[in-house]
Amino acid sequence: MSRLKGVCMASRRTGGRAGGTGRQEAVGSASKCDGGKSTARIVRSAAPFHLCEAFTREGGAGVAGAVPSDLIHGAYFGAILCTSPPAAHVTRQQLKDLAALTRSRARREHGRFLVEGLRSVEAAVQASAPLEAVLVTAEAADDPRLGRLVAQTDAEVHTIAARDLERIGDARTSQGVLAVARSVVRDDLDSLEAPLLLLDGVQDPGNVGALVRTAAWFGIRTVVGDTATADFESPKAVRASMGGIWDVALARVPSLVPVLGRLAEAGVTAWGADLGGTSVGEWGPGASAALVMGSEAHGLSPEVSDWLRRQPPVGSRFVFIPGVEGGQPRGVESLNVAVAGAVLMSRWLG
């Protein structure tokens, strides 16, 4: 990622607020800009806007621009974005490598994934997620929220043309910011902490992300998906998780049946969401339990359903959400899996 340079970031902590009739200056090294070859002079005054001027060590002036004063007020100089030196050209190969991370095979090979959008990147920074780089467009650099975000992250920050960011990301409309993170999904199950959520062939990444978000909200410690479940780190799932991906332990396994066996040995009771079984209003599994959600089209897989049916007391390990009295509506077969999961987790842990 070091080849994608171009944003000059000068940040410096200070006490007090800008004000008064005189002018104060602070000069600091722009360590995130061109390997520290630039310095930034930040001029503070009583004016509503402040100038940020970038100078190379050879004495050449960079481009000066107005910076909103709320980036400077308070306990720190927020990230002051300058444009010296000019943004480096992003090669087609670099764009291709980054865009490949929208595909699961490339994510697995490189152990990296994309985090798109200001809210998602903010959540990652606040959670001290393992970010390697943050890419921003010049247009998005004017957003004060982005300035504060950049001031907080330890990841490398680079500029990129808006059209190139659109080519990399998966979102229909880019918000001008994207991060590259190291994978957080495990393939080992050395430790399984209850309560757990198990996903059995949930194929829509939006549903997967929404379930992770709900699980994090209700304090579930671990979410496990089988290989038929959509990738937790796909762009859509990451966006739908709204930061929940950083709050739970995530694991991916070939099959859930061995996981269920281990949980049973550890005294964790597993329940499957199904159209039959115990009504949610009468359900009280306790914290040392696991909930299994099946696929949108077919529900629980035959292997998982058979395993649950054999557990004592036989046939009682299923929970369902009843609809209207007097029968099921004619046009609706079931609840969306993410909605059903939210109802069940609220009853279970809310």
Rank of each mutant, 00 (worst) to 15 (best):
residue 217 W to K: 06
residue 253 V to T: 11
residue 316 S to P: 07
residue 32 K to Q: 09
residue 238 V to I: 07
residue 158 H to T: 08
residue 166 E to P: 03
residue 48 P to Y: 11
residue 24 Q to Y: 06
residue 135 L to C: 08
residue 109 E to H: 13
residue 188 D to V: 07
residue 206 G to V: 00
residue 134 V to P: 05
residue 321 I to S: 02
residue 1 M to W: 13
residue 117 G to A: 08
residue 45 S to A: 05
residue 263 L to S: 09
residue 182 R to F: 03
residue 319 V to N: 06
residue 343 V to H: 06
residue 201 G to W: 00
residue 220 I to L: 13
residue 188 D to W: 11
residue 124 A to I: 04
residue 334 S to D: 05
residue 266 A to K: 15
residue 5 K to G: 03
residue 257 V to Q: 03
residue 162 A to Q: 08
residue 126 Q to C: 00
residue 157 V to P: 01
residue 271 W to N: 02
residue 56 T to I: 00
residue 299 G to I: 13
residue 14 T to C: 13
residue 266 A to M: 10
residue 172 R to T: 02
residue 286 G to M: 10
residue 104 S to A: 12
residue 242 M to Q: 14
residue 210 A to G: 09
residue 290 A to S: 14
residue 257 V to A: 03
residue 99 A to N: 14
residue 133 A to L: 10
residue 295 S to L: 10
residue 210 A to Q: 13
residue 335 L to Y: 15
residue 67 V to L: 04
residue 281 G to C: 06
residue 135 L to D: 02
residue 279 S to R: 15
residue 246 W to G: 01
residue 173 T to Y: 05
residue 53 E to W: 03
residue 207 N to G: 02
residue 31 S to C: 04
residue 223 V to E: 04
residue 267 G to M: 15
residue 162 A to V: 12
residue 56 T to P: 00
residue 51 L to M: 12
residue 214 T to R: 07
residue 80 I to W: 14
residue 162 A to F: 11
residue 33 C to R: 08
residue 120 S to Q: 12
residue 288 S to E: 14
residue 85 P to M: 08
residue 202 V to Y: 00
residue 323 G to D: 04
residue 274 D to R: 15
residue 157 V to T: 09
residue 138 A to Y: 05
residue 214 T to V: 09
residue 318 F to G: 12
residue 159 T to K: 11
residue 268 V to D: 04
residue 167 R to N: 12
residue 14 T to K: 15
residue 304 V to K: 06
residue 283 W to Y: 13
residue 269 T to E: 15
residue 1 M to I: 06
residue 265 E to C: 09
residue 134 V to D: 00
residue 248 V to H: 07
residue 168 I to D: 05
residue 178 L to A: 11
residue 195 P to D: 13
residue 127 A to K: 10
residue 247 D to F: 10
residue 347 R to Q: 14
residue 240 A to K: 07
residue 295 S to R: 12
residue 84 S to Y: 05
residue 7 V to G: 11
residue 97 D to I: 03
residue 191 S to I: 10
residue 41 R to H: 05
residue 36 G to H: 15
residue 327 G to M: 09
residue 68 P to L: 01
residue 256 L to Y: 08
residue 25 E to C: 02
residue 184 V to P: 06
residue 103 R to E: 04
residue 136 V to Q: 04
residue 46 A to Y: 11
residue 157 V to H: 01
residue 101 L to S: 09
residue 303 E to S: 14
residue 161 A to T: 08
residue 8 C to E: 06
residue 173 T to R: 13
residue 78 G to S: 11
residue 73 H to M: 12
residue 266 A to Q: 15
residue 122 E to M: 09
residue 89 H to E: 07
residue 92 R to V: 01
residue 190 D to Y: 12
residue 205 P to E: 02
residue 96 K to Y: 07
residue 170 D to L: 04
residue 135 L to V: 11
residue 215 A to W: 06
residue 168 I to S: 07
residue 27 V to A: 00
residue 15 G to N: 15
residue 175 Q to K: 15
residue 44 R to F: 13
residue 176 G to D: 07
residue 300 L to N: 02
residue 189 L to S: 09
residue 289 A to T: 15
residue 95 L to T: 08
residue 51 L to T: 10
residue 222 T to I: 01
residue 20 G to D: 07
residue 297 A to Q: 14
residue 237 A to R: 00
residue 56 T to F: 03
residue 172 R to M: 02
residue 248 V to I: 07
residue 184 V to I: 14
residue 149 L to K: 10
residue 334 S to T: 09
residue 65 G to K: 15
residue 184 V to T: 11
residue 75 A to N: 14
residue 328 Q to T: 05
residue 44 R to Y: 10
residue 341 G to N: 05
residue 340 A to N: 06
residue 57 R to E: 06
residue 82 C to P: 02
